[in-house]
């Protein structure tokens, strides 16, 4: 399925991760091509978040390999990891904005604290990034707690794109938002990924979001990628697990246990 002539942006091979007796990732293989938006779908507890955190280096896998631009990033020192992180932009599920800083300082955080940019140019770049996510200068001095959930997501997106990263990660970008705000966020994500020419990896269980932002889709189930294809094929995958997930039916091979 992968065109070997084109270098892979992200390549994951046989990734395993356990927490105690809970074997979450059981041999994940996944390739992401440069400039493509890959969305990993799957139910709660299937390992989506753990997979994303392994790629980001926030969790160390037990075995397997993760390569970015052909170089292994599976086990790096803190300093080398920080360098790899400069390629990344990440939008967290809850925004993960820093309460103690203003909106513009949140957006400009990487510029101020990691890249050593002076406050004035950093503030100008933060304002430009906020404009790109349809937020005006009037919110720059506010604290994150003063923003609505949708605005916090947009500020989080501005923070992710401000340093023009090569790879963008989105963790459940529309969870907890009303359908209209979710659509706004999806459109912004799609627009920004295209504008930056970035590679994107998202995890979600929101099929509306998948249809908006995905070029490619992979489904994770019980710690393994069980299906992969282009986004337009997701409704005709021929895979009973994917079909059940897409239709949201209780009946099918995926059993949800009452807990």
């Amino acid at each position: 399925m992968t065109d070997l002539a084109e270098p892979l942006k992200i390549s994951i091979r046989d990734l395993h991760k356990s927490f105690g007796s809970n074997h979450v990732l059981r041999g994940v293989d996944l390739d992401v091509m440069p400039g493509r938006s890959m969305v990993v779908i799957g139910g709660s507890g299937t390992g989506k978040s753990v997979l994303l955190k392994c790629i980001l280096g926030l969790i160390s896998p037990d075995s397997g390999s993760i390569c970015i631009d052909g170089k292994s990033v599976t086990r790096l020192s803190a300093r080398k990891r920080a360098k790899v992180m400069s390629k990344f932009g990440m939008l967290f599920q809850g925004g993960a904005l820093f309460d103690s800083l203003s909106v513009w300082e949140n957006v400009a955080f990487r510029l101020l604290y990691a890249d050593g940019v002076a406050r004035k140019p950093a503030k100008e770049r933060a304002e430009a990034a906020l404009n790109q996510v349809n937020l005006g200068a009037d919110v720059m001095g506010l604290s994150p707690a003063e923003l609505s959930g949708g605005m916090q997501k947009r500020v989080g997106l501005a923070r992710a794109i401000v340093a023009k990263p090569e790879i963008l990660f989105f963790d459940e970008p529309t969870t907890g938002l009303d359908p209209i705000t979710a659509d706004v966020i999806d459109n912004l994500i799609r627009r920004q990924v295209t504008a930056l020419g970035a590679t994107a990896v998202s995890i979600t269980h929101d099929m509306n979001s998948v249809r908006k932002i995905a070029d490619d889709v992979a489904m994770i189930y019980e710690g393994k990628i069980i299906w992969r294809g282009v986004a337009k094929d997701v409704d005709n995958s021929g895979n009973p697990y994917v079909e059940q997930f897409v239709t949201g039916s209780e009946n099918g091979p995926i059993k949800v246990l009452a807990r």
Binding site: L56, L97, F98, A114, F169
Partner: peptide
């Protein structure tokens, strides 16, 4: 609230 994870992803 994942702010510590966010710090790491911001190379800090």
């Amino acid at each position: 609230t994942e702010q510590i994870d966010a710090l790491e992803t911001l190379s800090t």
